[in-house]
């Protein structure tokens, strides 16, 4: 009787040891990565305490430089092709004043509006704005009606016209859905800057500044207090998260 009880106790100890080991193996890397990333957990969600924004200095945006576009394509797995049916999340725009002939170069991307028309018109709610101001498309409920593309004042959205392969696992995309700049949300959630901003800084042009508009201590908030900035199509009252200076 007592032998059988001892054997049962040993079995139980072995079981508990094995369970602890399995649990350790399973949880350990997660804890480790969490520590490395220094980012908030997925459960935490985006917070309205922040509003992510971008300030683009058109006087520093170099003619012929396409580094931001290339970086965006690499980060998000876009082909980089520029046909009428290809996706472009960011593009270099040249504008020339009709009377004076003055030219400006600037990157045009989703302006991450506070009142985004794409979100208003989306029938299913797939077009949505996170609490921190980043405008995204929920690929699970986008039905591909393209009404958001009709509504966007910046032509910032693209429709995926053909099947895709070799995607970046962090940036799932799919045929038949609409997509646009996400401010590289996967990077922002790791406390990194969007790929375009990183590339612009690396090239030495320093034309793009990314940060929290709500944080008065952030570089972008300080810069916006000192220079005159322009909101594209300000007449629409959308309060864009992307601002330009030098126009």
């Amino acid at each position: 009787m007592s032998e059988s009880m001892n054997s049962k106790l040993e079995d139980r100890r072995d079981f508990l040891k094995a369970s602890a080991l399995v649990a350790g193996v399973a949880v350990g890397p997660g804890v480790l990565f969490y520590g490395i990333a220094h980012s908030r957990s997925p459960e935490e969600g985006a917070s309205s305490k922040q509003r992510w924004g971008m300030l683009i200095d058109t006087t520093k945006c170099a003619v012929g430089c396409n580094d931001c576009v290339t970086a965006c394509n690499t980060e998000n797995g876009l082909s980089g092709k520029t046909g009428e049916q290809d996706s472009q999340w960011i593009r270099k725009l040249n504008i020339k004043h009709l009377q004076t002939g003055v030219e400006h170069n600037l990157p045009m991307l989703c302006q991450h509006c506070e009142n985004p028309p794409c979100v208003d018109v989306c029938p299913t709610g797939a077009s949505m704005k996170r609490a921190d101001g980043i405008v995204l498309v929920d690929r699970h409920i986008c039905i591909g009606c393209r009404y958001c593309m009709m509504a966007c004042p910046y032509k910032a959205r693209s429709f995926v016209h053909e099947p895709l392969t070799e995607q970046n696992p962090e940036v799932p995309r799919g045929k038949g859905c609409v997509e646009s700049c996400t401010f590289c949300v996967q990077r922002v959630d790791r406390d990194e800057t969007p790929a375009c901003v990183e590339a612009c800084t690396a090239s030495g042009h320093q034309a793009m500044l990314f940060g929290d508009l709500n944080n008065p201590e952030s570089d972008i908030a300080k810069a916006m207090k000192t220079v005159a900035t322009t909101e594209v199509r300000a007449d629409l009252g959308l309060n864009t998260g992307v601002r330009y200076q030098g126009i």
Partner: peptide, 15 residues
């Protein structure tokens, strides 16, 4: 689309 009234626009995205 006229994003910048008073300006002529051009880009790789057919602006």
């Amino acid at each position: 689309l006229d994003m910048f009234p008073g300006y002529a626009e051009s880009s790789s995205f057919f602006d």
